[in-house]
């Protein structure tokens, strides 16, 4: 009886809850989208609302040698870093999830730790050590640093993929005489492939976005896009940065859509195979 009397009140309360959540989602997404109209501004400084439409900032972005080099550097650093992170992350995940090893949890925590630790602490430690062996300002230096901090992303996605199916598949292959490498190639890898690809894409995205390690470990000739953006932000505020930002935003979202599609396709394929195993 108490409940029926309170119904209109609780209905208003739950409507309020939904409204609150919608406002939070708007707060989460909208601020970044403000850059999009600004990037098409015809003004020479950031003004809202823009007084006219133009693509001049995209043109100057496309013509900028600085951005060309930075994008090329980001690729030269991000792709190898993500590849190293993927190879090592897969190894670590296989060992921790499938292997009979001591201190499993401590090792898992150690592998994940670089993602949690503030990058400034790692940068302060890596800079003097890399300076001693001449790695500061070189591609291998920043590639290895990014590989360490992105390996946890691959480790997490691949561990989840490995936990999704029983190790009996691998046991079966091995009973039939397949060695460890063969088993990995024909059984394990096809099963975890989506996790590996998603981990690779996450690692790549992370490396493209990473600022602090890049600030310490790259030189003006190896500087990445975030570092260039950061340097420009600190002394000028033209809409070129807005245009560059929108392009990067588009690239990030495209990569993540690719990751989402990979995951969805893998799920569909697994479901399809389970259904039509005979065909």
């Amino acid at each position: 009886m108490n409940r029926t009397a309170a119904t209109p009140f609780w209905r208003i309360a739950s409507a309020g809850l939904v409204l609150f959540a919608v406002l939070v989602l708007v707060y989460l997404v909208l601020p970044t989208l403000v850059i999009v109209p600004l990037s098409f501004s015809s003004d020479t400084f950031l003004k809202f609302p823009p007084s006219g439409f133009s693509t001049r900032w995209y043109e100057s972005f496309a013509a900028s040698a600085d951005y060309h080099f930075a994008i090329l550097n980001s690729l030269k650093i991000g792709v190898p870093a993500a590849l190293v992170a993927t190879a090592f992350g897969v190894m670590a995940a296989l060992a921790v999830v499938r292997g009979a090893i001591p201190f499993r949890r401590t090792l898992a925590a150690l592998v994940i730790a670089p993602l949690i630790l503030p990058q400034i602490v790692l940068a302060i430690g890596l800079f003097p050590l890399m300076a001693k062996v001449g790695l500061v300002g070189t591609y291998p230096g920043i590639v290895l640093a990014h590989a360490v901090v992105t390996m946890p992303l691959v480790f997490i996605t691949v561990s989840a993929a490995l936990r999704n199916y029983a190790p009996t598949f691998e046991l079966a292959a091995m009973t039939l005489g397949a060695g460890p490498w063969r088993t990995f190639l024909y059984v394990t890898f096809p099963m975890i492939r989506p996790g590996v690809i998603v981990g690779f894409i996450f690692a790549l995205t992370f490396s493209f976005d990473e600022l602090i390690l890049a600030m310490f470990l790259t030189s003006p000739t190896t500087r990445t896009v975030p570092r260039l953006l950061w340097e420009q932000l600190n002394f000028q505020m033209t809409p070129v940065i807005a245009a560059a930002t929108v392009v990067l935003l588009g690239a990030t979202i495209a990569l993540l859509c690719l990751a989402a599609l990979t995951g969805a396709r893998a799920r569909r394929r697994l479901a399809g195979e389970a259904k039509g195993a005979g065909a």
């Binding site: 190894m91 670590a92 060992a95 499938r98 190790p167 460890p180 088993t183």
Partner: peptide, 9 residues
């Protein structure tokens, strides 16, 4: 499958 963990690590 549980062997070789340390090698992989």
């Amino acid at each position: 499958p549980s062997k070789g963990g340390l090698l992989l690590l």
